[in-house]
Each structure stands twice: as structure tokens, then as C-alpha cells.
Simulated scan of single mutants.
Amino acid sequence: MSRQFLRFVIAGVIGFVVDAGALYLAMKAGAGPYVGRVISFLLAVFATWQINRRYTFDRQTDRSIWREWHEYLLAMAFGGVCNYAAYVVAIHMLPDASWTPLAAVAVGSIAGMGVNFLSAKLWVFRGARR
């Protein structure tokens, strides 16, 4: 399980880069830090799903890819609630600076990681061999 968790963390780091990059792009396009975060979170979930289904867990071939995506999105939404709550708290507590959204995304990502790993392992990719 430790190897699997390490792969999950690596996927999460890549997801963090996608999340933070998309957030800054969304904010530059006019979305605020809250709407931008919803957009960036969805993009990060898609990116981590692609990585986790191929490298962290063995994809179960008896389910449709659409069902797997919907289950993964729902599972990540549970961790996403923890993630977003921590993000909002961090936005309010940190100084108003250009690096604040990035730091808040990091705080949120760490807050949701454990919930996300367990829901992916025990529900979405249950029975994976890795």
C-alpha cells in the first residue's frame, strides 16, 4: 500500500500543478478566486484520474470508463469539500499577495489527500492489484 500511496501522491503533485495553473489562468480570464477554484479543481480531478487509473491502480475493465469517471469525480468531491474548505480558510487567513492562491491550493490539497486516497482505493479502484 505504501507504494500505491506514493504513486497517488505523485499524481496529486501533478494535479496540484494543473490545479494551481488553471486557477491562475481562470483568475486572469476574470474568474475570482472562488469560481476559478471550482474550474481548476475539476481540471485537476480529471488529470489525476487519468494518472491514477493507469499508474496508481489497475483499472477494472468490467466497468465502463464513463462509470469509472463519474465514481472518481464523486469520490474526489468528498475530499474536494475538505480541500475547498481549507482553501477558503487559507484565503481569508493569509495576507493578500500574489502567492496567496497558490499557498491556499496547497493547504487544500493536503487537507483532502487522505480522504481522496481512501475513497479511490476502497471504492473507485477496489480490487486493484497494485
Rank of each mutant, 00 (worst) to 15 (best):
M1C: 09
Q4E: 14
Q4K: 15
Q4Y: 10
F5Y: 14
F5E: 08
L6F: 14
L6A: 15
L6G: 13
L6H: 11
R7H: 14
F8V: 02
I10F: 12
I10S: 09
A11S: 15
A11C: 05
G12A: 11
I14C: 14
G15H: 09
G15I: 10
G15V: 10
F16H: 06
F16G: 06
V17P: 00
D19F: 10
D19L: 04
A22V: 05
L23C: 05
Y24M: 04
Y24N: 01
Y24P: 00
A26V: 02
A26K: 00
M27L: 02
K28D: 09
K28A: 13
K28N: 09
A29S: 10
A29F: 01
G32Y: 00
G32L: 00
P33E: 08
P33L: 01
V35R: 00
V35T: 03
S40T: 01
S40F: 00
S40G: 04
S40M: 03
L42V: 09
L42G: 08
L42K: 04
L43G: 11
L43Q: 01
A44R: 01
V45G: 10
F46I: 12
A47W: 06
A47M: 12
T48K: 04
T48S: 13
T48E: 09
W49R: 02
W49H: 09
Q50V: 15
Q50H: 13
I51N: 08
N52F: 07
N52E: 07
R53D: 01
R53I: 05
R54D: 07
F57P: 02
D58G: 08
D58C: 05
R59D: 06
R59N: 05
T61I: 13
S64F: 12
I65C: 10
I65N: 11
W66G: 13
W66R: 15
E68P: 07
E68M: 10
E68L: 11
H70I: 15
Y72K: 08
L73E: 09
L73K: 08
L73S: 11
A75F: 06
M76S: 14
M76Q: 14
M76N: 15
A77M: 14
F78E: 13
F78G: 14
F78K: 13
G80V: 04
G80R: 01
G80N: 05
V81P: 03
V81H: 07
C82D: 04
N83E: 14
Y84W: 10
A85I: 12
A85E: 07
Y87N: 02
Y87I: 05
A90M: 04
A90E: 01
I91R: 06
M93F: 12
M93E: 08
P95N: 09
D96Q: 11
A97C: 12
W99E: 10
T100S: 09
T100F: 00
L102T: 13
A104Y: 01
V105P: 01
G108E: 03
G108W: 03
G108R: 04
I110M: 07
A111N: 06
G112S: 10
G114P: 02
G114K: 08
V115H: 04
V115Q: 10
N116F: 13
S119C: 15
S119H: 10
A120T: 03
K121S: 06
L122M: 11
W123T: 02
W123I: 07
F125I: 12
F125V: 11
G127T: 05
G127P: 06
R130D: 02
